Each structure stands twice: as structure tokens, then as C-alpha cells.
Computed example of a mutant assay.
Amino acid sequence: MSEEPAPLRATGIDQSFGDVEVLSDVSLSVDRGEVAAIVGPNGSGKSTLLRILAGISPPDDGTVTVPADAGGARSLGFLPQRPAFREGFTARDTLGFYAQLLDGVDNEDVAETLDLVGLAGVADRAVGSLSGGMTRLLGLGQAVLGDPAVLILDEPGSGLDPAMVERLFGIVGNLAADGTAIVVASHELPAVEAHADTVFLLDEGDFLASGSPTALLEETGTETLSEAFLQIVGTRAGETTVRAGVGRRANETETGGKRDDE
């Protein structure tokens, strides 16, 4: 990994919705060429954190810094948990639209990106006819278009079959090898274990543990990241891991009905 300053750094992030504290003094940095995975129970605030890192939602407190000039057409690419596009556009037209918003990105880049994410064969199909998994791959294409220095992915493997999950994380690994700093929130723990350099386990408003997958296995004395996850969050296999935030009143949804945060 590079000795240059981390292209993504978050310090002291606080976020609440009403009387529900979702994030409390959360800090992390991600280096060039690093794949950092955010894992945690449902409702632990992963999507909230990623939206803050991507600059989409301002935190109540804290700072996020990303490179102003990364040498590519954009500094940061973001794949939301539920990507949505105009259904009448083709996959090629969709990426072509985003390419027009980026300096130096042309139709050749669009074609290369479609091939990268495995959609070259359906490039001229309307978005409305794509499966949910294909739509997510199109979202990944939108996120990587323009070679961003920082890539933030929220549950990129959702809706994909195991082979496509492995392909997607392989793409992520190749992008990291080229120097991209990557943050990915995912419930696909086997893929995270195989491909992430650093894992941050988010729960109760902050990181309960962080380190390489190997370090977390050694720390917990477990054989898989799934087992380590269950041990750290204090549950047994088969129990529900749904979080309601910190300081919540009984019977309220995690964000007072305002968000459905993973």
C-alpha cells in the first residue's frame, strides 16, 4: 500500500435521527489499494455511514476528506444500496448519460465499463428489462466510470448469485490493485473474508472491532468471519441480529420511521 496520505479519511463522525444515535465518534481511513469492508447487524448504521463518506448526507458532527484532484475524471464513485435508473434507457445509454457529466470519459470508456461489470452482452437492453442483479451491476458500472480514486459500495452483492458475487468482488480486487481506495458494506461475509484487506465491525454506534480477516479470526479463535462476527456481536447462530440504534425508546423503528438503514 502507498505511503501517501489516505485518500479517504473520516474523523469523529456523529449522526442521530431524532433521539436515536446511529453513529458516535466514528473514525476510519482507507489507503490507496485497500479494500475496507464495513460489516454489522441490520440497522447498525452501515448505509448511513456510507452516505456520509460519499458526501451525500452531512453528519451531525465530524469531518470526511477525499482527494480534490485524483487524476481521474472524478474523485469518488458511489453505488447506493438500491440503484435506480430510467427504465426506458438501455444499459449503454445509461452509462453514456453519466459519461457526459465527466470530463474525458467517452463511448469507448462506456463500452469498457460495460464489459468490466459483465453487461456487454445486454448493453442494448432497456433497463426496465434487466434483472435486479443486472441493475446492481449497472450501478457498479456507474460508480466506477471515470476511474474514481475512492469507490464506496453499499451491498453490491445483494441480489446476485454466488458466482456473480465472486465476480463482483474480483472486480473490486482488481480496482484496488490499480490503486483505488474501496469501502464496501456487505453481508456477504465469505466474500469479505476472501477479498477485504481490513474489516470494520460496526455496532452500537461505533466499531467494535477492526483488522484484517486473519487478525479477527485469531482474536476470536474462530475459523470463519461469520463465526467471528457472531462472537463479537454477542449472538449465537440462528439468533436475529437487528439493531434499533443507541438510546432508542421501546417499539420505535431505528430512525423514527425516516430511514431503512442496513
Rank of each mutant, 00 (worst) to 15 (best):
E3I: 11
L114S: 09
I171D: 02
E108F: 03
E4Y: 08
G245A: 13
L8A: 09
V110I: 09
V39P: 00
E34L: 13
V183T: 02
T241Q: 03
H187K: 09
G12Y: 03
G211C: 09
G247A: 10
V20C: 11
G45T: 13
D154N: 05
V172D: 01
V30W: 00
E254F: 04
G238Y: 11
L153T: 09
F207W: 02
F78E: 02
L151M: 12
G247C: 08
L153A: 10
E218F: 01
T220Q: 12
D14G: 13
V246Y: 06
R236H: 11
R167S: 13
A120G: 15
H187M: 07
D260F: 12
F85P: 08
F17P: 08
G121Q: 10
D260V: 13
L189D: 01
G118L: 06
A73I: 05
E4R: 15
G159F: 04
T224K: 10
P58I: 00
R82A: 13
A68P: 00
P213K: 03
V246T: 15
E219M: 08
D93R: 14
V233Y: 01
V199W: 02
G128C: 12
L95W: 07
R82S: 13
A68W: 05
A181P: 04
G62N: 07
S186Y: 04
P41A: 15
P67A: 14
A209F: 04
L137N: 04
T235E: 14
E227D: 15
G133P: 04
S47G: 09
S186V: 05
Q231C: 00
L168A: 12
M164N: 10
L151D: 06
I152E: 01
L49F: 08
A228I: 02
S186W: 03
V127L: 09
G205W: 03
L8Q: 08
A163C: 00
D109C: 02
S24I: 00
F207V: 03
P41Y: 04
A111Y: 03
S16H: 10
G146Q: 10
E227F: 01
F200I: 08
A237I: 05
V110N: 06
A68Q: 13
V199E: 03
L201A: 09
S27Q: 07
S29A: 15
P59C: 02
T48I: 07
L145Y: 11
E3F: 04
A194E: 15
V30G: 02
T253Q: 12
E166T: 15
T224F: 08
G33T: 06
R136I: 01
L23E: 03
L189A: 03
F207L: 02
R243H: 13
G238M: 12
F97R: 01
L101W: 09
D25Y: 03
A176E: 01
P148Y: 10
L153N: 05
D60I: 06
D25M: 07
S24V: 00
V22E: 00
L101R: 14
R9K: 14
L116I: 01
G256P: 02
Q81M: 08
E166Q: 14
T90M: 12
R32D: 08
N251Y: 14
G88A: 14
G173H: 06
S27I: 12
G141F: 04
